[in-house]
Amino acid sequence: MTAPKSLALDPMDIARLGSMSVRARVIVEGAFAGMHQNPHAGSSIEFSEHKEYAPGDDIRRIDWKAVGRVDRYYIKRFEDETEMRTFLLVDSSASMGYGRKGVTKLAYASYLAAALAYMLAQQGDPAGLMLFDEKTRQFLPPRTRAGHIRDLLVALEAAYAAGRTEPARALAEIGEIADRRSLIVLFADLLDAPADLADRLRQVRSRGNDVVLFHVLDPDEVELPFDEVTDFEGVEPEDARRLLVDPRDLAASFARESAALRERWRTTCVEARVEYRFVTTAEPPAEVLRAFLFARQRARK
């Protein structure tokens, strides 16, 4: 299932590409290159079901062959008629701006969001975008019109990390907008996420939405690889916390704490029937996207 090396570019290579649209396309193509079946191929034009005609239905979709066989009027329904609105929520708080050796978490989340948006646009599915910190910084509702994808990618390219994070508030806001068949994809580091995020996830999921949580962390936040005395300081506004320490003393304890954080969110998501995907910014985005798509395809079957 691994993609060819040339197509599964690592985040730094992706970052060097010209624009977000190119990045999105490269990621999507890299992801699909490793799959046995292309989910894009006619998925939206495949027959889905018959429905007995009712006044108001489009007469162009009457299945005349069926009328000939059973002498009754049936309307053909196709996949594209089961369209799914997707909301891409990208945490743009200051903590997402951390990236010591590679790309920042925000950039990485943007690549994944752009790739998903690009892929959805190719399928004709509407995709929306919300960039948020403690408030909604930018919101683009899901649309299928031409040009929408360009606006979305531009917004992602222009995203910057600042402010505190309140993913629960952003999720609540999307929950009000999304209908029952929406797909909500949240990209966040969840380092300082409040406890009510779990409640909000359950709430949104209970309304019939499909929710995916991409837990994005920098490798430094999984293990503490510093090897000299370091003066650590918080990144978010009003975070005055500082710690002057030899990180080698804390490495083991930090790794345990980080693993515990991930395990806590994974458990929370399982309980809320939310798909949890942990990624680090060192992983090739195409691999991450492919794994995500493959898992969903298999789940649909």
Binding site: A94, S95, M96, G97, Y98, R100, K105, D189, L191, D192, L217, D218, D220, E221, L224, F226, E228, V229, T230, D231, F232, E233, G234, V235, E236, D239, R241, L243, L244, V245, D249, L250, S253, F254, R256, E257, S258, L261
Partner: peptide, 21 residues
Amino acid sequence: RRARPVRFAAMELLLRAEREV
């Protein structure tokens, strides 16, 4: 004094680890 300053996002995790040891 020569300690390198680093703006670090996972301060909460770091402080918890520090409390432990």
